[in-house]
Amino acid sequence: MATQTEVLEGLAEIVNEIAGIPTEDVELDKSFTDDLDVDSLSMVEVVVAAEERFGVKIPDDEVKNLKTVGDAVNYIIENA
């Protein structure tokens, strides 16, 4: 079971790879769209990369609920 810190670090690397945002700026309260330059298309990439990295399934219906990095971290921890 991954810890919150491990999942946050992993997501930060993914967001850095896809959107070019420095990993230290990827924080729990940040909005993907408003703060991290991750638009709806890039969010699909983030989701696919996160599924692969954390061995979790994130259904399309669930993606719209993942507004902040914290939302995604919690979902991954609960469903991994």
């Binding site: 298309l41 890039s42 699909v44 990439e45 696919v48 599924e51």
Partner: peptide, 10 residues
């Protein structure tokens, strides 16, 4: 299927 880029069409 899952790995096809969502940016493909644009």
């Amino acid at each position: 299927v899952r790995k096809v880029s969502p940016h493909t069409v644009p």
